[in-house]
């Protein structure tokens, strides 16, 4: 794996040249992981209900459960995981530098990202919603939209964050923060009139703080969440895909639906028996 570095010269260029195993000559990561005896999963620890710590300091959430599904498929034991806690910024670099076998961290699939890592099959479809304080002067989405530029919306930082908000509220002012708790804090302290973020996160937050907030009743901006692995290892990608796929449609459906119920509060209908749903 060091050939690139040697031939390329270790001078200035090597400073940020992040190397990786070549796909041709070596065995698949699948064999490495099996030989190692546990999965190394990259995820975060600060976003409920996706990946966060319980009061007794255990990592939990829907992303974490996706990793557990893969570990179960590998070893028959969902607990055979070594977690690498990473910030959102570190998701792709940790994959490309082999710090993790795979990452499940509410990663939105985009074309630009798919050029850098290989995405698995999706495991959730997210949309954006608006949340206001329970005593907000604005009754609902229509009132927010009618108020025009006097409304400030707090969102999680993103290049498209402004366009995303403006698609729903064309004139609203947009304030971007880099962590979820701060966008809620902005709403709480009156710095913003509404929060625009993932519907799953909003639902979780409202369930934790009953009667204090209200949903504006409007959803938009679909996006797909998938896990990601390193490019160039089809065997490993295929394995992870199979594990996730069978959790959503096959033998591990109970695992997936139980997790779905825990974190999103909704019951799923089991996949229809007979002709495979994915070809309908």
């Amino acid at each position: 794996m060091n050939t690139t570095i040697r031939t390329g010269g270790m001078l200035a260029a090597s400073v940020f040249l992040l190397l990786s195993t070549s796909a041709y000559s070596e065995a698949s990561k699948l064999d490495d992981v099996l030989a190692r005896g546990h999965l190394v999963l990259g995820t975060g620890s600060t976003n409920a209900p996706w990946h966060f710590k319980s009061a007794d300091d255990k990592l939990q959430g829907f992303d974490v459960d996706m990793g557990r599904i893969v570990a179960k498929a590998l070893f028959g034991d969902p607990d055979k995981i070594e977690y690498v806690i990473q910030s959102s910024d570190a998701r792709i670099p940790n994959i490309t530098t082999d710090k993790v076998d795979m990452t499940c961290q509410f990663m939105t699939v985009t074309g630009e990202r798919a050029q850098q890592v290989a995405f698995t099959v999706p495991y959730y479809r997210e949309g954006v919603g608006l949340m206001m304080k329970g005593d907000s002067p604005y009754a609902d989405y229509a009132a927010l939209k009618a108020a025009g530029s006097s409304v400030t919306v707090s969102v999680l930082q993103n290049v498209y964050a402004e366009d995303m908000v403006h698609a729903a509220l064309p004139e609203a002012a947009v304030d971007q923060y880099d962590s979820v708790d701060l966008i809620y804090q902005a709403l709480e302290s009156g710095r913003s009139d509404a929060v625009a973020t993932d519907q799953s996160s909003l639902a979780w937050y409202m369930a934790q703080n009953p009667n204090r907030y209200k949903d504006a009743g409007y959803g938009w901006n679909p996006q797909t969440y998938a896990c990601a692995v390193k490019r160039g290892d089809q065997d490993w990608l295929n394995f992870v895909n199979t594990a996730l796929h069978e959790a959503m449609t096959g033998v591990e459906f109970d695992f997936y639906s139980k997790s779905f119920k825990t974190w999103f509060g909704k019951d799923l209908l089991p996949p229809e028996i007979g002709f495979p749903v994915e070809f309908k």
């Binding site: 940020f16 992040l18 570190a90 792709i92 707090s154 993103n158 290049v159 923060y177």
Partner: peptide, 28 residues
């Protein structure tokens, strides 16, 4: 100042990171 959404240099760099994931290049 990036923490409270003031669009200074770090804020802009993070903004570029979030979409492109060219974290290392942007920080360089």
């Amino acid at each position: 100042a990036a923490a409270i959404a003031v669009p200074e240099l770090t804020f802009q760099a993070r903004k570029i990171n979030v979409e492109s994931f060219r974290v290392i290049e942007t920080w360089i």
